[in-house]
Each structure stands twice: as structure tokens, then as C-alpha cells.
Design a protein around this nucleic acid. Structure first.
Lengths: 103, 103
DNA sequence: CTACTATATGAATATGAGTTCATATAGTTG
DNA sequence: CAACTATATGAACTCATATTCATATAGTAG
């Protein structure tokens, strides 16, 4: 491998795509409110109204954030009666654990 | 500790501030171009013109990104002649290593 | 000193993401 | 069924951030 054409992000290595995916993921979880929500779910399953007691955000906004987090598979939901309970997925636990090792 | 007042993100625990800081950090590094730059610097010191060979961004934009990354102390620079060489700080290495364990 | 190369910077613009608001859906209770 | 509670959703608006452009700085070479 010659250094002039070498790149850690060369398209041939496929790492470019990995960086794009990682970027997508991190952009979602890095937002402060969503990070707080993840932090809450780290303590275990919570429904939306419980989350509302912990963060100062409107019901609608929390719902939007949960939707975003669900889309990247870091959380999943389970409906019981009127309430929808959210939890971290294994992927979510893995990511949150790594992120909190940064500080 | 009673559960009604308990929160992983309660201001009393100081974790709120940590989440804010973590969010700030992650927002900077999660941007795709900056993530690519970090990925390049992971291979060792590079000057701006070398970085330009690896990513399809203008000199100006790369310079802006490097400025942002420097501000949060994940990279540092060293001027030698006309060129400015950038490298990961220890903090930067730590963070990048953790981030790439996510995928 | 002049011309040139490498990099930085600030202002203006464009783009994207967070927030709000009004409303919809779905389950519950009487 | 009607009234109520919990949550979701889409569109409009707002605000932050990326990008561009023109220009400045600083070192080098002749």
C-alpha cells in the first residue's frame, strides 16, 4: 500500500460508509435533551409521562425525540394500556455506556 | 432517596452539567466531515493540504472544522514553516477510540 | 521588496434540525 | 356512547450550524 493513495476513509475500505453511519447515530444521541432521555432510560423502563417529570420539555417534543431515538434502534417501546413504556435496546445500552466513558 | 424526586439527571447530582458538556463535545465530533478528519488524524499528524487530499472539502471549510475541533481540545496544531500540522490530543485519541467501538 | 504558497478568519448565505401548535389516534372509564 | 387520559404526528416556524466567498496573515523563495 503506497501512502499517497492511502486513506483511513478511502471508499475502497468501506470505512467512509461507517463514518457516515456513525455520524448519523451520534448526531441523534448527542442532542442534549435526547441525551437526558437516554440517561433516564438507563435507570430502566419509563413511560412518556414519567419522562416528563424528569425533563422540562413538552409532551409533544418528548414524543418527537423518542421517535428519533427509536428510529436508530437505541430504544424500543411497549404499549400497556394507555401508556407507552420505553427502554434502551442492547444497542442503546452499549452506546450509552461508551458515551458516558468519554467524560 | 424517594423515587418521585429521583432523577439520573437531577441538578443536585451534577450529572445535568455532565450531560450538557458531553452533548457539546459530541455535537462537534459527530459531524461527518469532522469525523472523517479525526479518522485521518488517527493515522498520525497531517497538515491541512494533506487533509485536503483525503476529503472533498474546500481549504476554508477544513480550516473552520479544524478550528472547531481544536476548541474542544481533541486536536492540537504545530506550525512548521508554512504548514500547520494537526494531531489528536490524548483526549482526542480517547474519544475517537471509544466512538469507533460503537460500530 | 515582490511574488508565491499555506492557512485562517469574518461576514453572508444556505441548509438542517429543534420547537411549537393544533390536531389525530388509541385506550380507558363511567 | 361520551368524556377523558396518554401519546403521536405533520406542518409551520425558529434557531443553530455548515458552507461559501472574499480577504487577511504569515512564512518562503527569488
Amino acid at each position: 500500500m503506497n501512502m499517497s493513495s492511502y486513506s483511513c476513509c478511502s471508499s475502497s475500505s468501506g470505512e467512509l460508509k461507517q463514518v457516515a453511519l456513525l455520524s448519523l447515530l451520534l448526531k441523534i444521541v448527542s442532542e442534549e435533551s435526547r441525551l437526558k432521555i437516554l440517561c433516564i432510560l438507563r435507570q430502566g423502563e419509563h413511560c412518556v409521562c414519567e419522562i416528563m417529570e424528569h425533563v422540562d420539555l413538552s409532551q409533544s417534543l418528548i414524543s418527537h425525540h423518542l421517535h428519533d431515538l427509536k428510529e436508530i434502534d437505541v430504544i424500543y417501546d411497549e404499549k400497556r394500556g394507555l401508556r407507552v413504556y420505553y427502554s434502551l435496546t442492547d444497542k442503546g445500552k452499549h452506546i450509552v455506556n461508551l458515551l458516558f466513558r468519554i467524560i
